[in-house]
């Protein structure tokens, strides 16, 4: 029963949504609005799950004094403190909450991404290998496109930007299109499997 009822819910709602996509009638639109309203009401609680799991993971670390448990204190303190500043002083511009966002959260998140440039360079040296003819073609195409982006490429030969453009317009287009069709079909199949109750991984373990 613990699995059947959720399965029935998915299948019923799923088929209603299949019908919805072909029916433009107001009744069908109202169904969507109803669903969205309910989803919106469910959504805020998902963050509770996030907070709880963070507290459980780090709480455990702290209580067992796992290696580097001190940093778990930092995480939890950062969480509590940031949330509190938001609740106490509000979330408008100029509040401590926004200051934290601008000067702590934002620089760190963009720096995390910027780290990738270093990794790409190191991977270029150590890992981007022409292991196979396919990988060789890929790397050659990549080099042409990269050269096409900088003035030096044009200075070497005017064919570099032209071939870079051709790569984007022809092979890239064909591969994007074919992959899109394939992935679209694969996703449809998975959705269909969920809909028919064949795919139940999302229900998780247990009975």
């Amino acid at each position: 029963m613990k699995r059947q009822i959720p399965l029935i819910i998915v299948i019923t709602l799923g088929f209603m949504f299949v019908a919805h996509s072909f029916i433009p009638h107001t009744i069908s639109q109202d169904f969507l609005t109803w669903f969205q309203d309910w989803m919106k009401a469910i959504s805020p609680f998902a963050v509770v799950l996030g907070i709880m799991s963070l507290f459980m993971v780090h709480g455990k670390k702290i209580s067992y004094k796992a290696p580097n448990w001190q940093y778990s204190i930092v995480t939890l303190a950062g969480l509590i403190f940031t949330a509190l500043t938001g609740f106490i002083w509000g979330t408008q511009a100029g509040t401590p909450y926004m200051w934290i966002f601008k000067n702590i959260q934002m620089p760190m998140s963009s720096t995390m991404f910027a780290l990738l440039a270093f990794y790409i360079a190191s991977a270029a040296y150590k890992a981007f290998r022409a292991r196979s003819p396919e990988a060789t073609v890929l790397l050659v195409a990549a080099i042409i496109v990269m050269l096409g982006q900088v003035p030096l490429g044009t200075m070497i030969s005017k064919w570099i930007p032209i071939s870079s453009k051709w790569i984007l317009n022809v092979p890239n287009l064909a591969s994007k299109r074919a992959i899109m069709i394939g992935v679209g079909l694969g996703m449809t199949a998975t959705s269909l499997k969920i809909l028919l109750g064949i795919e139940r991984t999302y229900l998780g373990g247990g009975d």
Binding site: A121, Y125, L139, V150
Partner: peptide, 13 residues
């Protein structure tokens, strides 16, 4: 940076 990465790829290979 692009040139450098291209050189890296070539050297690495």
């Amino acid at each position: 940076a692009h040139i450098m990465i291209i050189v890296f790829i070539i050297l690495g290979n």
